[in-house]
Design a protein around this nucleic acid. Structure first.
Lengths: 137, 137
DNA sequence: GTGGCTGCAAATCATTTGCATATAC
DNA sequence: GTATATGCAAATGATTTGCAGCCAC
């Protein structure tokens, strides 16, 4: 908890219980939750929390570059605390998102074909190994 | 028009006027339209067309791998007929999507870390060259 | 006439917004 | 007390669904 406390302090974000809990939750896992998933997880700990607070918190964390949002083809925005650029794999069957170890385009040179680059996100889609096994392929 | 006619025939998709027009529209440009943009463009040609037909057509084209959907952080699904894997650049200011010439991960080896790969999409985000100029940066 | 398209309207679902209350310093 | 955070409810906007009419073969 110390760590997330510090992250918020360093960014001049008031460390409320809700914000600490949400960031803690994001830091503790390697899943890439949606706002809805975060809301459901938080409710177990803070039954009175509202979706508004979840969205507000995600917005402020994102604006300070503490988290990134990733877009995959399921209509929901997912969030990731791993701010290092890396590829994802999105399973079209179970909708889980995995991190991949592949080398990524470097953003050092922040200009590509005249455009100023801020960020990169790459994802593969397909069937994950668990679903492959389940379907005994 | 011949070309899109053939594409639909080869895939056993009944080549209705609406479907031909939508696919023609997608084939003719390098923009990466959303369903809404396609609907608006179609209305000029077919004033009676409905959004349902646009969505239905996109769904059937996608299921035959004639088009791909791409997800960028604007909450709308964009569509792309360029089925060759390539990177995109998404401008967070004007929301335009550009194609990039960079080399992409090859999908030949269709297994990565145990997952079966069907597709790849990578996008950079930032400020495009037009918006940079407009802001005279 | 039967199956498959089309199109309207309503439903759904993620996200945003307005506002009123609560909390912290 | 004032600013800021929270939370409810309503609004928005993309997409989906149910259903009725229509068209082609």
């Amino acid at each position: 908890m110390k760590k997330v406390q510090n992250i918020l302090n360093e960014n001049n974000i008031k460390p409320t219980f809700e914000r600490l809990s949400i960031l803690q939750y994001l830091e503790s896992g390697t899943n890439h939750p949606t706002a809805g998933m975060i809301y459901e997880a938080m409710r177990k700990k803070i039954p009175t929390i509202s979706k508004t607070t979840v969205y507000n918190t995600l917005k402020i964390l994102k604006s300070h570059d503490i988290i990134h949002s990733i877009s995959v083809p399921d209509g929901e925005t997912h969030y990731d605390v791993n701010t290092q650029v890396h590829y994802h794999f999105y399973c079209t069957e179970c909708h889980k998102i995995y991190n991949l170890e592949l080398d990524c385009p470097q953003l050092e040179n922040k200009l590509i074909e005249g455009h100023k680059i801020n960020n990169f996100h790459g994802y593969f889609t397909g069937i994950c190994k668990k679903c492959l096994k389940k379907n005994n392929n």
